[in-house]
Simulated scan of single mutants.
Amino acid sequence: MTTWEYATVPLIVHATKQILDQWGEDGWELVQVLQMPGTTNIVAYLKREKH
């Protein structure tokens, strides 16, 4: 059975690509991006397989 670990990462608008590229290089897959209600804060939800 596959098991996963998860991470939530705050995103900075002017550096979103660089942040996601770095996490991707570390094996993380983007699951979803959400803006927090009532704020301008953006959070990425990522997962990767546990070994």
Rank of each mutant, 00 (worst) to 15 (best):
Q32W: 12
W4Y: 10
A15L: 14
I19H: 04
P10K: 02
V31F: 10
L46S: 08
G24I: 00
V31M: 11
L46I: 08
G38P: 04
Y6W: 10
W23N: 03
A7W: 13
K50A: 14
M36R: 03
D21Q: 13
E25R: 10
L46N: 13
T40P: 00
I19W: 11
Q35R: 06
D26L: 09
L20A: 11
G27V: 00
T8E: 03
P10A: 05
E29F: 03
I12V: 07
T2R: 09
V43K: 08
L46P: 13
D21P: 08
V43F: 10
Q22D: 03
H51M: 11
E49Y: 02
Q18I: 13
W28K: 05
L20W: 09
T16R: 12
A7H: 01
A15G: 08
L20Y: 01
A44V: 13
V33D: 09
E5L: 14
E5W: 04
V33F: 09
T16F: 12
I12L: 12
N41I: 04
P37T: 00
T16H: 06
M36Y: 03
G38M: 01
A44T: 11
W23H: 15
A15Y: 09
I19R: 12
P37Y: 01
I12Y: 10
K47Q: 13
T16V: 15
K47C: 05
L11K: 03
Q22V: 02
V13I: 10
N41V: 05
T3P: 05
V31N: 09
V13W: 12
W23P: 03
G24K: 02
Q18V: 13
I42T: 02
V13F: 08
M1G: 07
D26T: 04
Y45W: 13
I12C: 05
L20Q: 06
K17W: 07
T39V: 03
K17L: 08
L30S: 13
Q32N: 14
T3A: 07
E25K: 08
I42S: 00
H14I: 14
V43A: 00
Q22L: 04
K17N: 13
P37E: 00
Y6A: 14
H14K: 11
W23K: 14
Q18H: 15
Q35T: 07
L46R: 08
G38H: 00
W28T: 02
M1V: 15
T39W: 09
K50T: 06
R48M: 07
D26P: 01
V9C: 03
E29D: 14
E25Y: 06
G24N: 13
H51G: 06
T39K: 02
T3Q: 00
G38A: 09
Q35A: 00
V13D: 12
E25C: 10
K47A: 01
T8W: 03
